[in-house]
Write a protein that binds this DNA or RNA. Structure first.
Lengths: 236, 236
DNA sequence: CAGTGGTCTAGACCACATG
DNA sequence: ATGTGGTCTAGACCACTGT
């Protein structure tokens, strides 16, 4: 683990241990430098990381402060999208409906940047948070990149598996969101009625080299899903 | 304007001018250094900026590549949330329904971190993209920070005004999203029916010093709003 | 004006991707 | 093996906040 990542983790833990609130002041740069025995740029890089993740904000001429948001019950949009597996204390479980190898449809192939003749794994799940239906998910993995999946792996975190067992690291992802109405099948899985509102998110996950390896469509239970996004900016 | 921002802007313009596609390779670091006459870290910082914004991705040992997404018609979630005023070629207009000074409700006061005895500006608008109803917005500005607003300012971009006229710079924001059903009033403004699905986003905008100055509730027209979010990660 | 974070440099060394 | 981006350092100087 890199120095700046360790320092970021240490500072985040310090915030949690001390149960610091929004606006509480952290030690100044110079102290962090000597405390961790690293150069200014390394501390700065750790702080940038925390800033991007919404943990702190920095104010030139003044100091480094804790940032929080005040809505328990809202999940970070990114925590549900393969990044931080951390959902706080909540327990995530899945019913696996399907794991199979097939040929992709035109649409799926286009999103994965492959030809329809290539094999893909199709995974279909209903996911629960603390026992409540959370979403219905249909996702496709390029078999050339993810050569093996089974129901057991898929019941757990697929991303943990591809990362630890296959050494695959995710580079970046594109999420497409829109609101619509449930069809009959989706309503059945979610325990809702047809035509009820829903949030749909399609995500294309890319490897670090830019190649798509996973295309996923998630249909959320509108009553059990609310998200928070902490943004920084403007960027320029 | 800072060097690394200038370089970021120049590189982005170069990508657009050359109409580069996803995966196209950019000049290597060393060339960018000499081309712009700056040190390695400055180029790196410019590239980080572009990477965070989903414009490029960098692959160690290989190069710097253009990143794009392939869904015309999807707006960046952040472009509609006060950050980049750039919506591409689309024209954004507003009907101003209300601009007035009032006392905040309990709820609004809590979100703005002020007491209910403080004055706020209330702004109510219906917003259009290329003439199509896009969203209904109700927002509150802390009068102690934004001392003056009128219908003319509000018909345009409020953020441009507070930034250029008042010298206020936004630091960060917390967005809370959920899906629900329209009530009768909202349905009227959006030209939809009561109980139609909708995406609701509440956003709290903070100054660079962490103080909230704007709390806004937006109700989107579900057929005219679809968003893209380009994420990088995992962060740690 | 003192204190604090932000920018920028020059350079050493490291880790990864690709042929 | 080569070339490429990533980390880290030490230090100069700048820009902002708050007293």
């Amino acid at each position: 683990m890199l120095k700046y990542q360790q320092i970021a983790a240490a500072i985040e833990q310090y915030i949690n241990d001390q149960d610091l609130k929004q606006g509480d002041k952290l030690p100044v740069l110079e102290q962090l430098m000597s405390q961790y025995g690293v150069s200014k740029s390394t501390v700065t890089k750790a702080l940038e990381l925390l800033e991007r993740r919404g943990v702190i904000f920095q104010l030139r001429g003044s100091g480094i402060f804790v940032r929080r948001h005040n809505r328990p019950g809202y999940m970070s949009l990114f925590s549900t999208q393969g990044f931080k597996s951390n959902l706080g204390d909540r327990v995530l479980t899945s019913d696996v409906l399907d794991v199979s190898i097939t040929k992709p449809s035109e649409d799926v192939a286009r999103n994965l940047g492959i030809d329809v003749s290539n094999d893909v794994y199709r995974v279909e799940r209903v996911r629960y948070v603390d026992g409540e239906v959370f979403c219905y998910e249909e996702s496709y993995y390029v078999k050339a990149i993810v050569p093996y999946l089974n129901r057991e792996i898929v019941a757990d975190s697929i991303f943990d598996y591809v990362q630890s067992a296959l050494g695959i690291t995710i580079g970046f992802s594109d999420m497409y969101m829109q609101v619509g109405r449930l069809n009959e099948t989706e309503a059945g899985y979610l325990g809702l009625k047809m035509d009820d509102p829903t949030l749909r998110i399609e995500t294309i996950f890319h490897l670090t080299n830019g190649k798509p390896f996973d295309y996923s469509r998630i249909t959320y239970h509108y009553e059990h899903s609310q998200f928070v996004v902490q943004a920084n900016g403007p960027y320029m």
